[in-house]
């Protein structure tokens, strides 16, 4: 089990994260917060690229900094801005990464080929990566993260910059990789995690707001989300969440703590509603 105990990260006088307590066991954990909320800071601490100012991160009771290479041997990490060697083929690049991960030559070569197949890059395994699309590069990124068959897979904004089709493909890939391991995924795109996350972590004001299943988190707004095609008729204080066109009318989805059932239709809240509701201050 991976756990964070009272973890605080400061950069000089600026506090990026404060008193974070988290526990991770098997499953997909989604770090959901707006940009700049500290997701990448947390991810980098889990990857030992930066260190907590206070508190500790433990793997089965041992500090991950002290575990050093033994801990890093258990993680697979896809950075937010994943870099690659433009003049390498995926096979060459993955073999290099396998060497860096201290895999034996034969095993490294085998794993590289297996993962190229898994991420659907078989046809271009010997093509230089300079002509790859963003989605293909991200697939190389996930493949390199999986080379050592990690117990903890850490993905920082893995779908940023991908088109919708690539995002769906990526979600399916992550879902298939999530068995028997911890997958920690940071994103600000709600649809990325709605269907695959077993637990959602919300960060707000540098602190942990909540960690729960998507259903439970959605449940916090049960009875407070409505839809109407006449938003002007709603006099109670409310927060407009989304708008969509339906039969030539604008249907507005909103949240209110007052009962608006007489003027609007109650709908089931989704994760996007919660996101917009929770981070409404940041949005304004």
């Amino acid at each position: 089990m991976l756990s964070l105990n009272r973890v605080t990260k400061q950069y000089g006088s600026f506090t990026a994260l404060e008193q974070i307590d988290l526990e991770f066991s098997r499953g997909v954990y989604a770090l959901l917060a707006p940009n700049g909320a500290g997701k990448t800071t947390l991810i980098k601490m889990l990857s030992t690229l930066i260190f907590p100012t206070k508190g500790e991160i433990l793997w089965n009771g041992d500090d991950i900094i002290g575990l050093d290479a033994a801990y890093r041997d258990m993680i697979g990490y896809l950075p937010q801005d994943f870099g690659y060697y433009r003049n390498h083929t995926p096979r060459e690049f993955l073999r290099y990464m396998a060497a860096v991960k201290c895999l034996k030559r034969d095993r490294g070569a085998r794993r590289a080929d297996e993962l190229i197949d898994l991420v659907g890059l078989s046809d271009v395994r010997n093509k230089k990566m300079r002509k790859f699309s963003g989605g293909m590069i991200q697939r190389v990124g996930i493949a390199q993260a999986m080379l050592n068959d990690p117990q903890i897979l850490i993905l920082d904004e893995p779908t940023a910059g991908l088109d919708p089709k690539e995002r769906v493909r990526f979600r399916n890939l992550i879902s298939s990789l999530s068995k028997d391991r911890i997958v920690i995924l940071s994103t600000h795109i709600v649809s990325d995690i709605e269907t695959i996350a077993s637990s959602v972590i919300l960060l707000k004001d540098r602190r942990l707001l909540t960690q729960d299943s998507p259903a439970a988190i959605c449940g916090t707004l049960d009875g407070n989300v409505y839809e109407t095609d006449d938003i002007e008729a709603i006099k109670a204080p409310h927060l407009v969440l989304t708008e969509r066109q339906e039969n030539g009318r604008t249907v507005t989805r909103f949240a209110s703590e007052r009962d608006c059932a007489s003027a609007a239709r109650v709908v089931n809240p989704n994760l996007e509603d919660v996101f917009l509701y929770v981070y409404r201050d940041e949005e304004r």
């Binding site: 030992t48 690229l49 050093d68 994943f82 990464m97 860096v100 201290c102 990124g141 050592n148 850490i154």
Partner: peptide, 20 residues
């Protein structure tokens, strides 16, 4: 090299880590 290619963080988070 790794800093210029943007591969630094992936490599530093590997088993070899900064020892690369």
């Amino acid at each position: 090299h790794e800093q210029m290619r943007g591969t630094e963080s992936a490599i530093y988070a590997s088993k070899t880590g900064r020892r690369v």
